[in-house]
Structure formats: structure tokens, C-alpha cells
Write a protein that binds this DNA or RNA. Structure first.
Lengths: 220, 220
DNA sequence: AAGAATTATGTCAGTCCCTGACAATTGACT
DNA sequence: AGTCAATTGTCAGGGACTGACATAATTCTT
């Protein structure tokens, strides 16, 4: 095994037997892990248990995932990749903020399929709360998001024909946008688990508050 | 030892010999740790080495810090506490965004003293790059920042007489603001280590880009 | 279709982070 | 001085991870 594709980039499938098997193992590991996490909590689940549930050795687990956090966040990372792809396919004429906004909404629409290819939707939904309530996972998730944001900033800069090193606006915009998205998903998670449709709605509502929140006077 | 005060809340000093000794031990651990991290890198430094450098047992180290990350971020947490305090002492009449803006600037001004009470300023400065280049530390730092942001949001809500659970603006504003601050300190760190004055300058510059970055049209 | 070359997996040993339990020491208080 | 409480050290152990090497499974070659 020279390189296992991150959850992020899943190539079109060169699909020999070998590749199919690896994918199956990987998906099984994710499913086993999420089920155990959901049942016993993240910290009280050991990697040995996950490996055993997926019928591989602990060593193999670590060949698929760099650490315990990575398996917990695997699906999230796949959705992140979707988001980045969505932004790349927004029309070039669109202004930066609208492009980001529409890209997230596109993502929520397309996420279902990506998720259900690996785990039951409901199991994935439960991981949002798990992440939020597990310090180590939240930390890993935030770091992962900061990488996504870097990618978004570069893409925005490219769209606008700017040098992201010279003009701070791409990074500033994406940082503000990313902050609002985090707050949105957190609020959504706290509202006791609505579906992807509710998330979509909240996203719109929160993004619409960005302008007003920056305004000088909040008493309107 | 019933409770060690987090770096955050450092009480006025009831100062018996016992308290003074604890403080000295804590500061020594921080200094030893940062020196080792700076010299050998975070991951290649073991807790045993830190403990030995500070002349305490490994077990004692873990009574002062919940984990290795915490000692690396101890000073940052102290500065965070300064920030929160700075916001609380902004005049009530000030609008939310200006209050946050002035609070950071006040913080950068007052930080020097807090830092130098524990470690040489230059040693602290080097930790910014360390955090940025150490995945585990960056993750922990981002998580820590998200807690700070929650505190800021609650304070903004209080100032404005709002229920933060009902009105999303406090959280949205703080998330956007926090995002920009992260980008700012990162850019500052990458510009090969200027001083606190440069950081202050960059803060102003980046915050001033927030409005323009959200604008529809970037071509002005 | 059989063997050679790759690649994936398992086993083992070891390091490091972190924790609970208990004993020993040290400062506080009368 | 003597008691009480808080701090520290020692020890044993669990769990995340890694490097090294052997084994087994695919793929490639002829």
C-alpha cells in the first residue's frame, strides 16, 4: 500500500479487486467506529474494539487512518471535499460571498448521497453532537475546517484574479464565512437533530444575519 | 491540591508560602516546556523531559496541566483572559463590533506585562509559529479559541440585552470577528516575526477589510 | 497457467501520554 | 510541638501509535 486516498479525494474507481476490497475495509472501519462511538462514546471506545468489529488487526486500522480522530471525521471530510468542489463549479461571474453561500447550499443538497454510500444517514447525523461534545474531536474538526478554509480562500483568490498573499480579502471573507458556518452547524446540532433540510434553512438564516451583525446599531 | 487555577483566572494572590511555591513551579514548567519545544519541537519533546527540566516528577506535571498541549498554550490562555476582561470594561454605549475591535487593541497593549511575568517575550513570540506548524497544537488552540468566542458572544449579548439563544447576531458577529483574528495572527506569524506593534497594525488592517470583503463587487 | 513482483495484512516489541492508588513529605494552624 | 490538610513522588497499568519483519493475497509477466 503506497498511499490510501484520504476521504477527501475519492478517484473515479480504477476498480480492480484490490481497490474494491480496500474501499470495503475502509467503509467497514468507518461504520464500525461510528457505531461504537455512538453507543459507548468516543473516549470509551478503543481502537482495538473498532479493529475487532471490522475484523482487521489494530495495525491495519492505523494503515487506513492516521489516528482515531480521523475515522470519526472521515465522512465530514468527504462532505468538505464536496463543498470545495461545489465552489469550484460556481459560475465565474458570481461575487465571492454569493458564490460561497450557494456552494454550501449545493453541498447540503448533494451530501445525502455521499454519506449514505458509507453509513446510514442517521448514524452520521449523530456524529455532529458527538464531535461537539468531545473536546479532542472538536479540536480535530476545527483544525480540519481551517484547512478547508485555506482551500476556499485560494479558490476565491483565483476566481477574482488576486494574489492571496498580497490581498487579505479572500482570507478575511472566508474566515468570516467559515465562522458563521461553524456557529450554524453548532446551533443546528443543539436544536436536537433536525434533518439536512433544517440545516439548509438555518444556514440561510444565519448568513442573512452577517450583515446586520456587523452594523453599528443593533436596535432596529 | 484541590484545584489549580487555570492560567485564565489568576486571583489577586493570597500568597502564603504554599501558593507562591505552586506559582513558581507552574511558571517553571511553562518556561521549561516552551524552551524545549522551541529547541527540539513539540512532538520530539517528552513530558518526562519537561518535568525533569523543571525538577518535578512527571506525575506532578500532570497535576498542573491536564495534558501536554495545555502547557504549550498556557500563555495564550492568559492573553485570552485578558481579552475577555478588556471587552467587559469597554463602555456600554459602544456598539458591538467597535467594542470587540477596541478590546483586542487594548489586549495587545496589555499583553506584554502578562507574558513577561512568566517567560521572556521572545520565547513566547516563537510559540505562535510553533502552534501554527504543529497540527496537534493548532487543533487544541482552535478549540480553545472557540471557547473564548463563546464567552465573547455571551458578553456581547449581555451588553445588548439580548437572549443569545434567541438572537443569532452575537454568535454570528463573534464568529466572523474571531475568524478574522485568526487569519490576522496567522498572517503576522508568517511575516517572520514582527513584534506586538506589528500585530496591532495588522489587526487594524485586517479588520478594516471585513466590510469590503463582504461587498458584492471587489473591483474598485 | 505458474512463477515473479507488488502490495496488503498480521504479529511483535517498544515509546509515549495519561491515570488511579497509595505512601511520603511539606506547609498551615493552634 | 503536634495535628491537619495539601503537595509531591513512586508504582503499576491502559491505550494510542510506530517501526521492523514475516506472511498472505493480488497483480503482472511470460
Amino acid at each position: 500500500m503506497q498511499s490510501i486516498e484520504g476521504a477527501a479525494a475519492r478517484p473515479a474507481a480504477p476498480s480492480g479487486l484490490r481497490e474494491r476490497k480496500k474501499r470495503r475495509t475502509r467503509d467497514t472501519l468507518i461504520r464500525s467506529a461510528l457505531e461504537l462511538f455512538s453507543r459507548k462514546g468516543y473516549e470509551r471506545t478503543t481502537v482495538d474494539e473498532i479493529a475487532e468489529a471490522a475484523e482487521v488487526s489494530q495495525r491495519t486500522f492505523f494503515r487506513y487512518f492516521a489516528n482515531k480522530e480521523e475515522v470519526a471525521l472521515a465522512i465530514q471530510s468527504a462532505v468538505d471535499a464536496l463543498f470545495l468542489a461545489a465552489l469550484r463549479s460556481r459560475p465565474a461571474a458570481e461575487a465571492p460571498l454569493p458564490a460561497l453561500r450557494e456552494a454550501v447550499l449545493d453541498t447540503w443538497d448533494g451530501a445525502r448521497a455521499v454519506i449514505e454510500a458509507v453509513v446510514p444517514l442517521e448514524l452520521h447525523m449523530r456524529t455532529y453532537g458527538l464531535i461537539e461534545s468531545t473536546p479532542q474531536l472538536l479540536a480535530a474538526r476545527l483544525r480540519s475546517l481551517s484547512e478547508v478554509e485555506e482551500g476556499l480562500a485560494l479558490e476565491i483568490a483565483r476566481r477574482e484574479g488576486l494574489d492571496p498573499h498580497a490581498d487579505p480579502r479572500p482570507h478575511v471573507l472566508v474566515a468570516a464565512f467559515g465562522g458563521v458556518m461553524r456557529v450554524t452547524t453548532r446551533a443546528w446540532g443543539e436544536r436536537g437533530e433536525g434533518g439536512l433540510d433544517d440545516l439548509r434553512e438555518l444556514t440561510v438564516a444565519y448568513l442573512d444575519q452577517l450583515g446586520p451583525a456587523l452594523a453599528e446599531n443593533w436596535r432596529t
